[in-house]
């Protein structure tokens, strides 16, 4: 992961304008997310946005740039730095029939709203039957030289909390389609965007206002026959790069992009493993009790008869995300690490 010019924008400091689709209809992940929000706000007046600096400023990453001009300050609501209350506002308004989408400035600050997320939002429906159509959007993840407090991957916390759907898209189309599905869902969804992907990855994205990607379905991003790499988020892109290189070495890797962590699409994972007999679980949250720990255990438990090799995990060590590029690269799984792990698995 080389340092490039987009890093400072990705970290949120001095962010440039969000940008537009290219002439041939390609959209960045950032643009795709903005389109999803815009379309759903046009479609349903119950949808509104709230968060820190999302109004006139357009949000730390410019996702909501231009929204306040179109939808006004009531539907693009700037809040004080009060994360518990941002979540509470969303929950209470949802109970009264709105469909709020709250933006956390960074996923790191979800810990400042933790109780309202994991206790109030997550546990309310099971005990009361009240639908809770709330989306919490948050820029997550590392690889952008943003250090400990702007690089976090909180998905294991929320995936471990019954009552939340956790979505981690890797591509612009999936980001758009899944965010629209989340906004239309009657349950609380934690939508974790990845900062490294925001401005880097571009692709043609549907302009159909009813384009949806269903929550809870994984996608095979690259077919292969020797080893399955189960991953999500930024690591999908590292896995695809590794798979390309491995092809040259005669190893065929299949890349399964989870897209949503909960509900977990076990069927896609298990049928891929049934085909390849080998599984690498690659993830960006901490290795210990991270998302891959559950996925790995699930494969071992439910797919044992398919396996020709032990399930292997590749993930960051159990330390906070460090700043120095040398340290951050040592922390995050690199393409070379993925290749080495797959080669080892393939040799079994």
């Amino acid at each position: 992961m080389a340092q490039t010019g987009v890093e400072s924008a990705a970290a949120g400091h001095g962010a440039e304008p969000r940008g537009k689709r290219t002439e041939d209809g390609q959209a960045t992940y950032l643009v795709a997310i903005a389109e999803a929000l815009w379309e759903e706000m046009e479609r349903d007046e119950r949808v509104f946005l709230l968060g820190e600096d999302i109004g006139v400023y357009g949000g730390a990453f410019k996702v909501t740039e231009g929204f306040i001009e179109r939808f006004g300050p009531e539907r693009v609501m700037d809040t004080p730095i009060a994360e518990e209350t941002i979540v509470g506002l969303a929950l209470g308004a949802a109970m009264e029939g709105f469909r709020p989408v709250a933006e956390f400035q960074y996923a790191d600050f979800m810990s400042s709203g933790f109780d309202e997320i994991t206790t109030a939002l997550a546990r309310y429906h099971y005990r009361s039957g009240v639908p809770i159509p709330v989306v919490l959007r948050a820029p997550s993840g590392g690889g952008v030289r943003a250090s400990s407090f702007h690089s976090f991957n909180p998905e294991p916390w929320f995936a471990h909390t019954p009552g939340l759907k956790v979505i981690c898209p890797a591509f612009p189309s999936d980001a758009k389609g899944l965010l629209k599905s989340a906004i239309r869902d009657d349950n609380p969804c934690v939508f974790l965007e990845h900062k490294w992907i925001y401005r880097r990855i571009k692709e043609p994205v549907s302009e159909d206002p009813d384009f949806l990607v269903p929550i809870g379905i994984a996608k095979i991003q690259r077919e292969g026959s020797d080893v399955t790499i189960v991953t999500y988020g930024m690591m999908v892109h590292q896995a695809l790069e590794a798979a390309e290189d491995l092809e040259q070495k005669g190893i065929s890797a299949e890349v399964v992009d989870l897209r949503t962590i909960t509900p977990l699409d076990k069927d896609t994972i298990l049928s891929s493993v049934a085909k390849t007999s080998r599984a690498l679980v690659l993830y960006e949250s901490h290795r210990f009790l991270g998302v891959g720990a559950e996925v790995g255990a699930m494969i071992a438990e439910e797919g044992f008869e398919h396996l020709d090799a032990p399930v292997v995990r590749l993930a960051p060590p159990n330390v906070p995300v460090p700043f120095s590029p040398v340290l951050e690269d040592a922390y995050l799984p690199q393409v070379a690490d993925i290749e080495a792990a797959v080669e080892k698995l393939a040799a079994w």
Binding site: G88, L89, G92, A93, E96
Partner: peptide
């Protein structure tokens, strides 16, 4: 905080 949300509605 949730009461704030209902009142906002």
């Amino acid at each position: 905080p949730v009461a704030c949300g209902a009142a906002l509605a």
